[in-house]
Amino acid sequence: MTTTPHNAPEHCPGTNSEDAGKADACAGCPNQQVCASGEPAAPDPDLLVVKERLAAVKNKVLVLSGKGGVGKSTVSAMLGRALALDDSKEVGILDIDICGPSQPRVMGAAEEKVHSSGAGWSPVYVSDNLAVMSIGFLLNSADDAVIWRGPKKNGMIKQFLRDVDWGALDYLVVDTPPGTSDEHLSIVQYLSAAPPVAAVVVTTPQEVALLDVRKEITFCKKVNIPIIGIVENMTTFVCPKCKTETAIFPATTGGGTKLALDTGVPLLGRLPLDPRVAQACDEGTNLLTQEPDAAITQAYKDIAKKIMAFYEGQSQDTT
């Protein structure tokens, strides 16, 4: 009988297949070497270490999208800031986009460096209750390119989860790269050992983005990650002078609203295209406190409330 590891890629041939560890689908899989050797896969000893390290992290939020350029990093940062508006909550943002780390700049911490202590790496605090970790803090220059194959990227993600002293967090928001590949398999494998973990899927309204976002939703279902909901980003642009509303990315097939109906996944919110968001991310400032009455601020607050309600509901279901 052919068996398939729980964290295997979609077209895994199975551990007993002659193609085990040799098929194209095996490239980048953490089990590739073991499968190719014909030996039974041993449990990763670091799973227990990660579980113990994250025991004090109550809720993990994966920000996903199969498509690049839809604003995952922006949404991750803004959601982290929105959750941290509640002074009683401790929030962390983990950037696992190894080749394109954005969070140091977006969070206004581009010049910061990571420090080590007996408890592990210390994340960078951008406010009293909001911490950030990214490979960007480990680079000598923001212009340095990270040119790594899958296994090394996977090792870095494991190190972020195993060695960072997050302390007690209410929410850990994970900013992911586009796709459904190595980084996603790794983060799911390790966070699944320390539940609860769920996903927020980001899209823009046009069909070219929705094509890849549908794949991300399928990925979540295959690896048993609950989806909190869909966020449609850059829905419309309102001219600040004439107040005309324009769909920069026309929803020719129904956009995020139709995607939510088709997949049975809740629509968490529709975010306007606001130039102030891009400016705040470039400058590393907190738009939510600078513009507390703006429509974009209220939209993020509403999404954050829905995320908190989702985890509160899960907590009640387990009691």
Rank of each mutant, 00 (worst) to 15 (best):
M1F: 15
M1Y: 11
T2N: 13
P5I: 03
T15C: 10
S17V: 14
E18R: 13
E18S: 09
E18N: 12
D19C: 08
D19H: 13
A23H: 05
Q32L: 06
A36P: 14
S37T: 12
G38L: 09
P45R: 14
L47M: 13
V50P: 02
R53Y: 05
L54P: 01
V57H: 04
K58P: 02
K60C: 03
L64W: 15
G66T: 05
K67D: 01
G71I: 10
K72C: 00
K72R: 04
S76M: 04
L79N: 07
G80A: 13
G80K: 02
L83H: 10
A84Y: 12
A84Q: 07
L85I: 06
D87Y: 07
S88E: 05
G92E: 09
D95S: 05
D95Y: 08
D95F: 04
D95E: 04
I96K: 08
D97L: 01
D97N: 02
S102E: 05
S102N: 04
Q103N: 05
V106N: 08
A110G: 11
E112Y: 04
K113C: 00
H115Y: 00
H115S: 04
S116K: 11
S116L: 12
S117C: 03
S117E: 05
G118H: 05
A119P: 04
S122N: 15
L138F: 15
N140Y: 06
D144Y: 06
I147Y: 08
W148R: 01
P151D: 10
K153R: 09
K153T: 08
K158H: 05
K158A: 01
V164E: 03
G167M: 06
D170P: 01
L172M: 13
V173Y: 12
G179K: 02
E183M: 00
H184N: 05
H184S: 03
L185V: 11
I187S: 03
L191R: 00
S192P: 03
P195F: 12
A199K: 00
P205Q: 15
Q206I: 01
A209Y: 01
L210P: 04
L211D: 05
L211Y: 06
V213K: 00
K215M: 10
K215T: 12
K215L: 08
K215A: 10
T218N: 14
F219G: 01
F219R: 02
C220R: 02
K221N: 14
P226H: 09
V231D: 01
N233Y: 10
M234S: 07
T235M: 06
F237C: 06
V238M: 07
C239F: 11
P240T: 08
C242A: 07
E245S: 15
I248G: 07
F249C: 08
F249Q: 04
P250C: 12
P250G: 10
G255S: 05
L259R: 13
L259G: 15
A260S: 15
D262Q: 05
T263E: 15
L268Q: 03
L268K: 08
L268T: 07
R270M: 11
R270V: 10
P272L: 11
P275Y: 15
V277G: 10
Q279E: 14
A280F: 11
A280K: 11
E283W: 10
L287P: 06
Q290N: 03
E291V: 00
P292A: 10
A299S: 09
K301W: 02
D302N: 14
I303R: 13
A304E: 06
F310G: 02
Y311S: 09
S315Y: 07
T318G: 09
